[in-house]
Write a protein that binds this DNA or RNA. Structure first.
Length: 478
RNA sequence: GCCUCAAUAGCUCAGUUGGUUAGAGCGGCGGACUGUUAAUCCGUAGGUCCAAGGUUCAAGUCCUUGUUGAGGCGCCA
């Protein structure tokens, strides 16, 4: 059969009267006559109208949802109502059958949980087609945003030797035989005999490496997989996820917040402009689902309205201290409705507090900054008050923390004493300290959880539904 | 890691105080149908009630343990 024309092109250009060939997968077969074929290039399918007499009954029997087909014929204006054009097929080939007795994706409503167990096939549904097209556009938009601003894409290593970052539990990387590892004379596993001659792990963050590059290239960003061996069971955690980490020399905490807010708005706007059909479907599907819920659990806004609202609003920017004041004076705190009642300054904010600030008090994205130094990482710049550090977290409705970042401590002595306080081994991170020794300067950066961004933009409540093959504790299928 | 809930047909679920042969919708299969929109109509098949143990005359239903899933918390992005 001839080369195919993509269905998105057919629908966009509508070359009526021309003979074209399309190839894709059957979504439905109606009235023994109409085949909805989707090739993934567009949310919409193309209706193929077959001539039953010209097809063998053998071929007809093979047309079922999920089958791969090719059709050649004349594009015509549709006589029916649901579509502008359709393809009158003269030839139809079934490339691959899909036995309806066993094919799990039938034209009916399936739950997200069921489709998650069939993650290899869920791309063929409307919902996941839309999600993964949007995921692509979003990752493209990230590169576009940074490229337009003269950032360099830095490929930070996946395998790292430092286990000193304190960013979470790590996955060990080894080629040693677990049943029979080489031992030292005192009976310990001899890591000198391991592949790299030392203990290695999968990266938990590209930040430290990004800092090295930023202090020469000026502004860089990483965008790659990140691994955390935390035993997290929530709808917003994965063991393998993708993170975007810009790092900019000479930026202070305020520049950092500006960059993050600009980026988030750019991404939201990009998706609104480029993924309209997919977004509209997800918007409608969510609306339908929400209408089943009790009134107090329904969101105030639909998906698209929520995204547009985010674009129009300046994000609220408040210090940790101001946040504590708001929370101390809040109804749920006074009435002890919080599981963790805020007693005073210094308390770590729980997700219920973050959710109150974002969803009840401000009702828009919130940037919290200047946290107590005791609850934050060693590399964050200590303020003059010597009590707080220039950390910032961006909180989104429904998602929680979507970005975490800071201005970095560029003063060698202060950094060293912070590392000492927090038991971070300095010898191992000599290269990180060298940056403060030679040509140190103020610099800032943050990490964006890419899947959390996809979650926000698609309105998916579970992070496992916005990554093709989710890795979570006890699950690495596919 | 902690807490809560769930598991019944391919899917989504119902199944009363423990009581005869386990129910529906969708999907499947067979048939009808040349303007359908997850088509419709008629007919039909389909079950190790998550697993193991226990209580009982009797367990889908009660108890214990385990497995898997969902939600919440912590860790964070």
């Amino acid at each position: 059969m001839e080369k195919r024309t993509r269905i998105d092109q057919v629908l966009a250009t509508k070359p009526i009267g021309e003979i074209i060939t399309v190839k894709g997968w059957v979504r439905s077969f109606r009235n023994n006559q109409f085949i909805a074929v989707n090739d993934g290039s567009d949310f919409d399918s193309l209706q193929i109208v077959i001539n039953r007499e010209s097809l063998s009954s053998d071929t007809l029997k093979k047309i079922h949802p999920g089958a791969a087909v090719g059709a050649k014929g004349t594009l015509t204006e549709s006589q029916g109502r649901g579509q502008a054009v359709e393809l009158k097929a003269d030839e139809l080939i079934v490339y691959g059958e899909a036995d309806p007795e066993t094919y799990p994706i039938q034209p009916k409503k399936h739950t997200k949980e069921f489709l998650r167990e069939n993650a290899h096939l869920r791309f063929r549904t409307n919902t996941f087609g839309a999600i993964f097209r949007i995921r692509h556009e979003l990752s493209y938009a990230i590169h576009k945003f940074f490229h337009e601003r003269k950032f360099y894409y830095l490929h930070s290593p996946i395998i790292t030797a430092s286990d000193a970052e304190g960013a979470g539990e790590m996955f060990r990387v080894t080629t040693l035989d677990p049943n029979n590892p080489p031992l030292t004379t005192d009976g310990q596993v001899d890591l000198k005999k391991d592949f790299f001659g030392r203990e290695t792990n999968l990266t938990v963050s590209g930040q430290l490496e990004a800092e090295l590059a930023a202090l020469a290239l000026g502004q860089v960003y990483t965008f790659g997989p990140t691994f955390r061996a935390e035993n997290s069971h929530t709808s917003r955690h994965l063991a393998e996820f993708w993170m975007v980490e810009p790092e900019v020399a000479f930026n202070d905490i305020n520049d950092n917040m500006d960059l993050a807010e600009d980026m988030l708005k750019y991404l939201i706007n990009y998706v609104l402009e480029h993924c309209r059909k997919d977004l509209q479907f997800l918007h409608n599907a969510a609306e339908k689902e929400d209408s089943q819920k009790p009134k107090n659990q329904r969101p105030d806004m639909g998906l698209i309205d929520r995204l547009e609202f985010c674009l129009e609003q300046d994000f609220a920017r408040i210090t940790y201290t101001e946040a504590i004041d708001i929370l101390m004076n809040s109804k749920p705190n006074k009435k002890k409705k919080f599981n963790y009642v805020i007693e005073g300054w210094g308390a770590d904010l729980q997700s219920e507090h973050e959710r109150y600030l974002v969803e009840k008090h401000f009702k828009k994205p919130v940037i919290l900054y200047n946290y107590p130094k005791d609850i934050k990482s060693f590399y964050m710049k200590v303020n003059d008050d010597n009590k707080t550090v220039r950390a910032m977290d961006i909180l989104f409705p429904g998602i929680g923390e979507i970005i975490g970042g800071s201005e970095r401590e560029e003063n060698l002595d202060v950094l060293k004493s912070r590392m000492k306080e927090m038991n971070i081994p300095m010898e191992e991170l000599y290269w990180y300290l060298d940056i403060r020794k030679y040509g140190s300067c103020p610099h800032s950066g943050y990490g964006l959880g890419f899947e959390r961004m996809v979650q926000f933009v698609t309105g998916m409540s579970n992070i496992r539904d916005v990554i093709p093959f989710p890795r979570t504790p006890g699950n690495a299928s596919f």
